[in-house]
Simulated scan of single mutants.
Amino acid sequence: MASGQVSLEIKTNENTNVTERRFPGTMLIADLKNRLEVITGASAATMKLTFYDLSGNLIAPAEDEKTIESYLLNNSGGKLQLRVKDSNMIGFEDLSMVEKNVMSNEDYENRTDSLRAFKMRNQLGRFAPNVAKLEEEEVDPSIKIGERCEVKVAGAPPRRGQVMYIGKIGNKPGKFVGVKYDEPYGKNDGSFDGVRYFQCPSNYGSFVKPSNVQVGDYPEIDVNFDE
């Protein structure tokens, strides 16, 4: 067979990525292994090479004293698939093989080169000034537990009820007002993320921002469902 360049589609271990390279057909397999070290990261001393045709059919395992072109078939068109296996090579697609460095939250808090420290210095994310302002926002002192109230939220009709809770819920920033509605217009029963903050029937409870709550003389509205 005439000498020339052979195009190899190279796969390493179980990695699905394919690297295509051209090599002289007269190159010995032993020399090819040395070249593949830079391309695949496998070791020439421990790698095993196997040639396949472009349809994935096995041709033969490679032998060091043979040339690349000796594995070409008449209908290969100067191209081959080459699979490189090296059991000593860590497959980085398998994260279980990668040693993990576990750090306690306390140690992480004390680091000055962490992402959290960077965000704090530059007031980014949850450390941004607008978020901090929301955390510090005080609830209108007129809003007290037990007071009648009316809740006005954009896109929804006014809803009346009773203030049942004032404070934080879960990890949400800022304070919320827990309201027990007179009608089943709510989304919960006074609990949030599995934690109960007040008691009411299902779908009668809701947590809203203080700015959406107005307390005062808001008697319960009689609704005649028979009309």
Rank of each mutant, 00 (worst) to 15 (best):
V213I: 04
G190V: 02
R148Q: 10
A42F: 00
V151M: 01
R121M: 06
N13C: 06
Y71S: 14
L49V: 06
I29C: 04
L124Y: 04
T40K: 08
V151T: 12
S76F: 05
V6D: 05
K85F: 02
K152A: 01
V18M: 12
M164C: 15
Y204H: 13
T67Q: 09
S3I: 05
R126M: 06
S206D: 15
R160Q: 11
L115D: 15
Y181W: 10
L80A: 03
N212I: 02
E135W: 01
V213C: 07
G41T: 11
E183Q: 10
G25M: 11
D64Y: 01
S96L: 12
E147C: 06
P173K: 09
I59A: 07
I39R: 00
E69R: 15
Y204W: 02
T12P: 11
T50H: 09
N224G: 02
F23L: 03
T19L: 15
S96D: 05
E150P: 02
N17Q: 02
S87F: 02
L80Y: 03
K209N: 10
A2E: 15
L28W: 00
S114R: 04
G91K: 00
R160S: 05
E227Y: 00
E37K: 08
Y52D: 05
Y108M: 11
T40M: 08
V131H: 08
T16L: 07
E9G: 13
G146H: 01
G167V: 02
E136Y: 02
V163L: 00
R116E: 15
T46R: 07
N224T: 07
D226S: 10
S7M: 03
G125A: 15
M97H: 00
P141D: 09
L28H: 10
D31Q: 08
L73E: 10
G146C: 01
D222A: 00
A2G: 06
T67N: 08
M97I: 09
R121L: 09
S43D: 13
S43Q: 13
N15Q: 03
K85T: 14
R121S: 11
L73V: 01
A2T: 13
D64P: 02
Y52H: 12
Q214K: 11
E147N: 15
R22K: 15
N75I: 01
V18K: 08
Q199I: 05
V153Q: 14
G78L: 05
E69Q: 15
R116M: 07
E135S: 14
N15S: 08
P141K: 14
P210D: 03
P157Y: 09
L28N: 12
E137I: 08
V38S: 01
T19M: 14
V153W: 04
Y71L: 09
P173C: 10
L80M: 10
I10Q: 04
I166D: 12
D86N: 12
P201R: 12
Q123T: 11
P201A: 12
P210Y: 00
F192R: 08
Y181Q: 03
A117R: 14
D140M: 01
